[in-house]
Amino acid sequence: MNLLPASRVRTGVWPWLLLLGGVLALTGLALWLAARPPQEGSPAVTFARDMRLHHTQAVDLSMRILERPVSAPVRLLAQDIAVTQGAQTGQMGGWLDIWKLPFAGREAPMAGMDRSAMGMASDTDVLSLGTLPAAQAEVKYLQLMLQHHRGGVLMAKSGLNSGVPQVQTLARAIAVSQTAEIALIARMLRERGAPVPAGLPAAGGGMDMDH
């Protein structure tokens, strides 16, 4: 048998062992980073908290209009928003539980943000859905939800930049679905001869998302 000298075996094996060790170390680091939950103050945590609050109002608006005798298309839209955004609110709350973080940090969600620029309805507008005549409340709901969705699409950008895959996936889904519903709601308003809000008061002023 023509065996290789032991020195040559050692010389040939060690580089491969070192390379394998390096690969395993990098793999372990990647797995540790992937498993390490987002920390307090990170974009992912801020997104989950802020979007939960934003979604909660959309569900509230939708549940209020479902108590009124509105048309079938508006009822279907409100039901879809209530179910979809309610489920997403639960999903984001689940993340915070898994990350062992509270639903609110030192500051309340959306603290310091211009809520009207994010499409949030005022308390007066929210209450009007229960006091206006049904046909007017239907139009009011559509107008409020159009602005609300515009704000939701803007807020989704922070989730897309979070660096956390599951957060990015949800943020992308929110942006896509709400952009599509913006076009639908604008069409429903036009069908009713009602004005389509031009844009958000500040941050969204230049966004044409209803075409």
Rank of each mutant, 00 (worst) to 15 (best):
L142V: 02
R172Q: 15
P165N: 01
Q166T: 08
L20Y: 12
P201E: 03
Q178R: 05
D60C: 07
A108T: 13
R150K: 02
L154K: 03
S128E: 03
T124V: 14
W99F: 11
T124M: 09
Q178L: 07
E191V: 11
A72Y: 12
K100M: 11
G90D: 11
P15A: 11
Q88D: 13
V164R: 13
S116E: 12
H211F: 11
L26Y: 13
M63A: 14
S122E: 09
Q178V: 04
A173W: 08
L17S: 09
L31C: 11
L101A: 09
Q79Y: 00
V13P: 01
D123R: 13
M63T: 11
R75N: 08
A104N: 10
R187S: 14
G206V: 03
Q143Y: 02
L29C: 10
A180H: 10
A198I: 05
P133Q: 01
A58M: 06
I185M: 02
A202E: 15
P43E: 09
T169R: 04
M145V: 00
L96A: 10
L24V: 14
L200R: 00
D50F: 03
Q88W: 01
P69D: 08
V153N: 01
I182T: 01
A202Q: 15
A135V: 03
L66C: 07
S42H: 14
A25N: 06
R49P: 01
Q91V: 12
L24M: 14
V176A: 11
F103Y: 14
G21V: 12
L101S: 06
S158P: 05
P102Q: 08
D50N: 13
H148M: 03
V164I: 15
G205W: 15
A72V: 13
L184W: 06
L18R: 11
Q79P: 07
S116V: 12
K140Y: 01
S42P: 10
A183R: 14
P37C: 04
Q57H: 09
K100D: 15
R150P: 00
S128P: 00
Q88P: 05
G130K: 01
G152W: 03
H148Y: 04
M92S: 05
W32A: 15
L144P: 02
M188K: 00
M63D: 15
A30D: 11
G152Q: 06
G112I: 03
L53I: 07
L18I: 13
W99S: 04
Q143F: 01
Q79W: 04
L189Q: 01
M110I: 09
M51F: 09
W95I: 06
N2T: 15
P102V: 09
G152D: 00
K100V: 07
A171Y: 05
G163C: 10
G204W: 02
P165D: 10
F103D: 12
R187H: 12
D123N: 04
L17Q: 11
P109I: 08
G151V: 03
D50G: 04
S122G: 13
A6P: 00
A117D: 13
A121C: 00
P43Q: 11
L18C: 10
L154W: 07
G163Q: 08
Q143G: 02
R106S: 10
G86P: 06
A104P: 04
T169Y: 03
A48D: 09
V126D: 00
T131N: 02
L17P: 10
A117H: 05
D208V: 11
P69Q: 08
V167C: 01
K140C: 05
A48T: 12
T46D: 14
L142R: 01
Q168A: 09
R52N: 13
E40N: 13
L61C: 09
H211I: 06
G163T: 10
Q168T: 15
